[in-house]
Write a protein that binds this DNA or RNA. Structure first.
Lengths: 158, 158
DNA sequence: ATGGTTGCAAAGACTTTGCAGGAGG
DNA sequence: CCTCCTGCAAAGTCTTTGCAACCAT
């Protein structure tokens, strides 16, 4: 999604186009890794030092309401965000570096039917996240285990 | 899991068996619904008014470390917990009343192989949550939509 | 012009920690 | 008895909100 499209999306929904907002949005949408509000703040600060952390939070809430990012659940305490395609998709998450690969065609129809029959639930959505190591990290055989270690490792990766 | 087994589990891992702990644990393990720390606190307070909220948090952390509960991710800000069987399983979550049904045999082997081949990831875990309405709530056609409404509805259900 | 935005500071929500008294093994 | 546990209060995190100045439209 380019500058033009983003601006249009924002205006269409009654949001103004400001430099801070665009800096944040382009950082988020241009990343293929899991991002936390504070990591986004750090990245944006490098190129646009005038942007405040509060604005990051506010912009993320807008992006979420527009469906332009997903919240990805991790074991950490902060929200993690990843830019997302508009159609349904699920995630493949690298537990070492935080890289996220989206995939479609999860093909859960059969399972969903079975569960509907067994449980009586009226299922309307799901969330499927695979965890593992991406090719690069798998080669490195990184041993980081705790959230703090993963965070440290993640910082040293990028 | 009964009183005996729980006590044994605790002692085996160097934790003492106290009335507060047991009250909390039996509340959590005896529930088939999503529970938040504060909802657990409210439940426990009815039968054991002497139990403090801090102890609920501390006990939940122990239960999590022993693998006796899972953290379930919802759109709310608080952690939600559900007692969990020891083997691998996934969840079916009612977005109205918070009821959780565990299921096994998710049968994602084929999908996992495909993704491994396509992405190069070394996958070692996944989390699959289905969302929908359970039979009972589906009949009620509850219209609650926001987290606050769902919370209110959930309280009125039980 | 004017209504949404921004950054700051402060408040809010949830969770963890320090401590002194108390209970389990 | 010694160690772990509890409840209280306080501190810590992360996130949201109030406000006056500011900027996009």
């Amino acid at each position: 999604m380019n500058f033009q499209e983003i601006s249009r999306q924002l205006r269409k929904n009654g949001h103004k186009v400001t430099p801070q907002r665009m800096a944040i949005i382009q950082t988020v949408l241009g990343s293929t890794e899991l991002l936390t509000p504070s990591s986004i703040f750090e990245k944006v600060k490098k190129t646009d030092p005038g942007v405040g952390e509060v604005t990051v939070y506010r912009t993320l809430n807008i992006l979420e309401s527009l469906g332009m990012v997903c919240v990805v659940h991790t074991d950490e305490k902060t929200h993690s965000y990843i830019s997302c395609p508009t159609e349904h998709h699920d995630h493949l998450i690298c537990s070492d570096c935080g890289k996220v690969v989206n995939f479609t065609h999860c093909d859960l129809g059969t399972l969903e039917k079975r569960l509907t029959a067994e449980s009586g639930f009226n299922i309307n959505d799901h969330r499927l996240d695979f965890y593992g190591r991406c090719e690069k990290c798998d080669r490195k055989q990184c041993k980081a285990k705790t959230p703090a270690e993963i965070r440290t490792h993640r910082e040293s990766c990028h």
